[in-house]
Simulated assay, not measured.
Amino acid sequence: MQILWVDDHEILCVALSEYVQTHASELSVVPIEVTPVFTLASALEEMSKAPPPDLVFLDLNLDGENRGATTLEHFQAGNPSKVPVVVCTGLTPGNDQEVEILRMCMRDYAARGILLKGGAHKKMFIGLSRILGGELWIPEEVLLRFACSTQAPSASGNEHHLGLTPREWDVGRCIARGLSGKQIAKELNVTEGHVRQVSCVIYDKLRVRNRVEAALRVNAELGGGSGPDKAPS
């Protein structure tokens, strides 16, 4: 089994890669070879090689603008073979914003599982074994937070308007209504930082420069006329 491990903490990335290879006989019934890389660009270069890896472990906070769920989105765009991707992250289930990022990874970007860097060593070992055995694995504490979340479901269902994911479309509709970042965060029960992150992805996908242009595009999709009810600031 060929594994690609992507993490910008080089020492940790190499250590985890060596750990998996050293304990391969305990973790998997097939031989394992792990390639560590430290940037998203390097990871995408590896994905372009033939044959691609069988499995990818991806940190969510890498170089440049690759932070949170955006990292997985960018990676999946360069993953035409649909190689399974497991999120290996320092995010914690005790933080509402970080739980929502993990939810987005599973719901919107087809993550195959989640490993928590800060979790108990034994649980991470069990998770690795299950994942390498072909299972979808999510730590129990993350599943509990998913189940207990009071966040309202996306009104857009499974539709992908303008090429946006359901979460991006929710933010886009709020932008089109002229809501501020703070108001959007309150309505969608996320942080302002998360709204800024998703907004940047929306601008890039729609090829617009600002909130006003994004609002115009979304309103046109909604059939709401030439512009938002109130021009976004």
Rank of each mutant, 00 (worst) to 15 (best):
E45A: 14
E45N: 11
E46G: 01
E46R: 15
E46N: 11
E46C: 13
E46H: 11
M47I: 14
M47E: 11
S48R: 15
S48T: 14
S48Q: 15
K49L: 09
A50W: 00
A50R: 11
P51C: 00
P51R: 09
P51V: 02
P52K: 10
P52E: 02
P52Y: 01
P52G: 03
P52I: 04
P53C: 03
P53F: 00
P53D: 04
P53E: 02
D54A: 14
D54V: 05
D54P: 03
D54M: 04
D54S: 13
L55I: 13
L55K: 06
V56H: 00
V56Q: 03
V56M: 12
V56T: 11
F57L: 13
F57K: 04
F57P: 00
L58S: 05
L58T: 05
L58R: 07
D59Y: 08
D59V: 07
L60P: 00
L60T: 09
L60W: 05
N61M: 14
N61Q: 14
L62I: 01
L62Y: 00
L62W: 00
D63V: 12
D63Q: 03
D63K: 09
D63F: 02
D63E: 13
G64Q: 12
G64P: 00
E65V: 10
E65K: 14
E65G: 03
N66C: 05
N66Y: 02
N66M: 00
N66A: 02
R67I: 03
A69M: 04
A69T: 09
A69D: 05
A69L: 02
A69G: 01
A69Y: 04
T70G: 07
T70M: 06
T71I: 12
T71N: 06
L72C: 12
L72A: 13
E73Y: 10
E73H: 07
E73M: 08
H74C: 11
H74Y: 13
H74A: 15
H74Q: 15
F75L: 15
F75W: 01
F75G: 04
Q76F: 00
Q76P: 01
Q76I: 04
Q76R: 15
Q76D: 07
Q76Y: 01
A77K: 15
A77R: 15
A77N: 11
G78V: 09
G78F: 07
G78M: 10
G78W: 06
N79E: 12
N79K: 15
N79R: 15
N79S: 11
N79I: 11
P80D: 03
P80R: 06
S81N: 13
S81C: 08
K82G: 03
K82W: 04
K82Y: 01
K82M: 01
V83C: 06
V83D: 06
V83M: 11
V83R: 14
P84Y: 11
P84Q: 15
P84C: 10
V85Q: 06
V85F: 02
V85W: 05
V85K: 05
V86L: 05
V86N: 04
C88K: 07
C88F: 15
C88I: 00
C88G: 06
C88M: 14
T89L: 10
T89H: 09
T89I: 10
T89C: 13
G90N: 10
G90Q: 07
L91A: 10
L91I: 09
